[in-house]
């Protein structure tokens, strides 16, 4: 499948017109000029869009793809209404499926599978919650095991667990070679 077709497939959630909009980019560079990440790194938003237009699959393995903070500044300012931030999310989905997910990101994903939270509670916060008159454990998946089961069902259904390489026997991440 071509990169364009794969991006369009990600439009199932964000809308085809949204993720397709990279096709109308006129390479003016306003996105790069607006980008806080581009100020401090070699990341260039316009270049990413340009490479997508050219069907250049090397974008998927380029660490620059993960330099965007999803601040939406470029998205708001683009004169051609290219939905840049959504396109970046969609292309990252493809990259993740191809195994280009960094270790820290796999770890964040595994916390949600293990606890229902990307940032789980710790003893220090439990103590502080009590001091503040709040229940020591918040009324979330931390407190309700059946709710956590519901989250686990979802990640199994979508094969998210397989994508991040979560091993249910050891309840931890499988070792992966760096790609």
């Amino acid at each position: 499948m071509s990169l364009k077709d794969e991006i369009e497939e990600c439009g199932e959630i964000l809308g085809k017109d949204t993720v397709d909009s990279f096709l109308v980019c006129m390479q003016c560079g306003k996105c790069t000029g607006s980008c806080p990440s581009g100020r401090i790194t070699s990341y260039r938003t316009r270049r990413i869009i340009n490479r997508l237009q050219a069907g250049d699959r090397s974008v998927l393995s380029d660490p620059d793809l993960w330099m965007c903070t999803t601040c939406y500044t470029c998205y708001e300012r683009c004169p051609r209404e290219v939905r840049i931030t959504d396109i970046i999310r969609a292309v990252r989905n493809i990259a993740a499926r191809e195994g280009y997910m960094s270790e820290p990101h796999r770890a964040t994903a595994s916390f949600v599978i293990k606890t229902g939270h990307g940032v789980p509670i710790n003893d220090e916060t439990k103590k502080l919650r009590k001091e503040l008159g709040l229940p020591e454990v918040p009324p979330t998946t931390h407190k309700y095991p059946e709710a956590l089961e519901s989250i686990r069902k979802i990640v199994k259904k979508t094969n998210f667990d397989k994508m991040v390489g979560f091993d249910w026997d050891t309840m931890s991440l499988e070792k992966r070679e760096k790609k």
Partner: peptide, 22 residues
């Protein structure tokens, strides 16, 4: 009761939009 991670739009949305939406 039983709410979870939202899950983070720019992080989970970047990993897998279907899982994020569900």
């Amino acid at each position: 009761e039983g709410a979870s991670c939202c899950p983070a739009p720019g992080v989970f949305g970047s990993f897998d939009l279907r899982t994020w939406l569900l």
